[in-house]
Nucleic acid binder design. Structure first.
Ligand SMILES: [Mn+2]
Ligand SMILES: [Mn+2]
Ligand SMILES: [Mn+2]
Ligand SMILES: [Mn+2]
Lengths: 220, 220
DNA sequence: TAAAATTTTTAGATAAGTCTAAAAATTTAT
DNA sequence: ATAAATTTTTAGACTTATCTAAAAATTTTA
């Protein structure tokens, strides 16, 4: 069985919202995430429900079935593997790959992404630090990853992920020298707004709570 | 300006038929090539005409405008570069890549295929020996390429292309050891049906006129 | 708990691309 | 030059995914 690009995007969006909020997904939230109208969502949700990819009851929101979840995770796998390819092999920057991966993730082929995965030597994380599900849907985890906002003064860590893949944010991080793999140390924290001074290899930068809560760190 | 997958496929098909027959393309031929109905073709052809990608007069068939031709060639460029990638980097066989490239050719990105082209070190021909247009639309040519059917007894050459990318044909060639780059020599020709005995590096095979006329050779 | 606000669904339209059946135009054959 | 055959176009319908506006259900507020 094969699904339309639209169906796949709905499943992916439902998966994302379900994981984020830990409960069934509302029509409005879905409409908002997919930049469409609630009425359109209702239509599609009925269709996906009939195909048993989601469970849906009027006014109660939706959640993925086992099958729907598998499909969603597979699309996410495709997306992230393509992002690795674009950055590692074609030299794209991490803020340039998302849109293209949004297209590539829908290419229909049993083998393609598995071959690409071999070619890339089975990466576990994408250019934004997000985990890449394996063929069976298992998602790698990081043992002791925390938000930079939780790191105390003097403590050291390595940047392993970003919790926001907005292009401007990624470009900002690039300028601040806060990219994946960078070793950092908390130099100071300002109580009044929880902003921090962060020491990287060659400079110190001040970042807001907003920023530090979107950076994922592995403690040294 | 960006076009739908369908529009792009129509332009590509028109380009192919126009090149092949050297005259304007009929509704029926187009319908046949695109595996759709003549009535659907008439609709789309009106649409492309309004966009000035083709010229169209009722009952007179269509031909590409400069702009339409540029788009068609660009899609072909995409297709062939992706085919090279699939074969060279992901280890696909030449009979496995066409369908996937049919999808990949429509990915919308200014840069993607150019970067891929760099990554592949600017190939001039795809895995089937078809020329890859450059970014400006220039199509590489081979000076002295001829059909194997034109090669005389005793003459030698190298296989540089196939004029039919049907999967079964490609698999047949593989079995006969008649793949791109192979050196061959005409051992014998049978007058009654123009079939030939061909010597390759390690064996002799008999092939029909049908087959030899679809193999492109560069004379030694 | 009743009114107000919000969310969700329904009803009806639209656009792209496709199809069948029938009409119109063109080409081929007699 | 007509008739017959073929090609092409038109007319009308269908599917998918969308939208707006209005109705219905649910949740919040007072
Ligand atoms: Mn992404
Ligand atoms: Mn990512
Ligand atoms: Mn091809
Ligand atoms: Mn090819």
């Amino acid at each position: 069985m094969s699904y339309t690009k639209t169906e796949e995007n709905y499943l992916k969006a439902i998966y994302g919202l379900e994981s984020k909020f830990g409960k069934s997904v509302s029509t409005n939230d879905l409409a908002n995430k997919l930049k469409t109208k609630a009425s359109s969502v209702t239509d599609m949700v009925k269709k996906l429900s009939k195909k048993e990819l989601i469970t849906y009851e009027k006014y109660q929101g939706v959640s993925l079935t086992k099958c729907g979840k598998e499909i969603a995770i597979n699309i996410i796998r495709n997306h992230r593997i393509w992002e690795v390819f674009l950055v590692e092999k074609l030299g794209y920057k991490w803020d340039e790959v998302h849109e293209i991966a949004e297209q590539l993730e829908h290419i229909k082929s049993e083998e393609l992404v598995d071959r690409l995965d071999d070619f890339l030597e089975h990466p576990s994380f994408d250019p934004h630090g997000d985990p890449i599900p394996d063929k069976k849907g298992n998602i790698p985890t990081r043992k002791k990853a925390i938000q930079l906002s939780e790191l105390g003064i003097g403590e050291e860590g390595i940047i392993v992920g970003v919790k926001n893949t907005n292009n401007e944010f990624l470009q900002y991080l690039e300028e601040m020298n806060l990219t994946l793999g960078k070793k950092i140390q908390v130099e100071k924290e300002f109580d009044f707004d929880k902003s921090k001074i962060i020491k990287t290899d060659n400079q110190s930068v001040t970042i807001s709570k907003e920023v530090s809560s979107h950076l994922i760190i592995e403690k040294k």
